[in-house]
């Protein structure tokens, strides 16, 4: 059986809020190392990969592999009841038809209990190879969100170009062109504002802004975001959750004419 108690319960709500507009039904795959999720959007353009490691929970117990087939719209309805500082506990049998979710207030004077019906979801799992990316950019997640949102107002796609001069986000739309360039930036006192660009070779790729803006719904999870690029492979956008738990988005590049 699964029993997992999360003290940073808002993490669960933020993860679901971040992915529910991209995927609707998905399996939460539970085993002794934690709770994982992998799902593609309907058009098979983007892939979501999440891992909440066992050490993010206290206690965490999962004796055997359990797939929790969850409709995220339904889970969102249950998570509406979650309040800041609540402890959340997930419980399920070995072959569950429902997921038991308990919210406890930090003062333990309120316990809310929900049973969410589960579904059988036949999902294809993709093997994601370890990739040495040509460019890795770590930057404030709010900045990335602002750039994507601003450029989406002008165009449906963005070209991301990483060179020794920095990383350039540019777009061309009916009303004109726009571009934002970021350079390496170090702020010793406010490290969350740093822009770190690691480059092994120049990269230029074009992506749909609709998906990037969607990924930015994960911004409340972390004040930093990591963007990894290599020519001709999907973009990786990563938000670290707690410790080494993560939420990753992969986006297939646009095909050049």
């Amino acid at each position: 059986m699964l029993e997992a108690r999360l003290s940073q319960s808002m993490v669960l709500k933020k993860v679901v809020d971040a992915i529910k507009d991209l995927v609707q039904d998905c399996n939460f795959d539970c085993n002794d190392s934690g709770i994982a999720l992998q799902a593609m959007d309907n058009s098979h353009v983007a892939l979501v990969s999440m891992l909440l490691k066992a050490e993010s929970f206290e206690p965490y117990r999962c004796d055997r592999n359990i797939a929790l087939g969850v409709n995220l719209v339904s889970l969102t309805k249950v998570l509406r009841a979650l309040q800041n500082d609540d402890l959340v506990t997930l419980k399920a049998d070995d072959a569950p038809d429902s997921l038991n979710i308990t919210f406890e207030s930090s003062t333990a004077d309120r316990i809310s209990e929900y049973d969410l019906k589960l579904m059988d979801i036949d999902q294809e799992h993709l093997g994601i190879p370890d990739t040495e990316y040509a460019a890795t950019v770590t930057m404030p997640s709010t900045e990335f969100k602002r750039i994507c949102t601003d450029l989406q107002a002008m165009s449906e796609s963005v070209t991301i170009e990483a060179t020794k001069d920095g990383i350039k986000f540019s777009c061309a739309g009916d009303i004109g062109n726009g571009a934002v360039t970021l350079r390496n930036y170090q702020n010793v006192e406010k490290e969350h504002l740093n822009v770190d660009i690691e480059l092994t070779e120049p990269v230029s790729l074009t992506f749909s802004l609709k998906y990037l803006v969607n990924f930015c719904k994960a911004q409340p999870l972390s004040d930093r975001v990591k963007i990894c690029l290599s020519n001709e492979v999907p973009l990786l956008v990563e938000y670290l959750i707690t410790g080494t738990s993560y939420l990753r988005f992969y986006l297939a590049p646009k095909v050049r004419d």
């Binding site: 058009s43 093997g127 999907p234 992969y250 297939a252 646009k254 095909v255 004419d257």
Partner: peptide, 14 residues
């Protein structure tokens, strides 16, 4: 969408 790559063509099925 025209010109949009498919994620399944980059990652192998398990």
């Amino acid at each position: 969408e025209a010109g949009q790559g498919n994620i399944m063509s980059f990652f192998s099925k398990k």
